[in-house]
Amino acid sequence: MHIEKGRLSIACVSLVLGLMLSVQFRSTQDIRATLPFQRVEELSARLHEVEAENKKLESELMDLRGMSGAEKSEKINDDIMMFAGMTALEGPGIILTIDDSGKIAKKENDPNLYLVHDEDILKVVNELRAAGAEAISINGQRLTANSEIRCAGPTISVNNVRSAPPFEIKAIGEKDNLINAINMRGGVADSLKVWGIKLDIQPSDNVWIPAYKASSKYKLATASTKEASK
């Protein structure tokens, strides 16, 4: 064995090797330790969120229980009116305008691709709702559970009121969420921009959304007390 030749230098090399080994070992342990730890943190944050929500609902329940009959029915009535779109609302949100393309249509392409269609508006509205929009209006028409968005010649009809582009869609909700939902990569904005359709989003701290204007239109349906058959 000729190892004895450079004892000191070999000892140094082993020292470095040992150092590297144990540092590597330690950092691997660290990584193993931190991953579950992060998960725990994430879960506990979620738990806090749910607990806060639970508390809020509980206090709401207590409020309702504590109210007299008239107060209660008024509160419920207000909630229902709000939910049905019968009251004007305001709050933080976005104002989104969509207009037909400014590009000159190429001969080989269908000129329809350069126009805003009911489908495009539907996609935008769907995306906004998925992002948690609480109220939406299109060109001053409040979207309710019964609202249609339909192509009507060169115009689009909402609540049976026709309007021509540009369309102004107002939504109340978390501004950033709404903007990101529309601008998501491969999302609505991306697919519309291919054809040069003008889409502009302005965040606003105070978006005002009108109430549903038409009268209630339940001519045929009546309230039923029957439960859903199983």
């Binding site: 070999i10 000892a11 140094c12 090399v13 082993s14 020292l15 470095v16 090797l17 040992g18 150092l19 590297m20 080994l21 144990s22 540092v23 070992f25 330690r26």
Partner: peptide, 10 residues
């Protein structure tokens, strides 16, 4: 010895 020392140091 060097190896052990290095590991402890690490």
């Amino acid at each position: 010895i060097g190896l052990l020392l290095g590991m402890v140091l690490g």
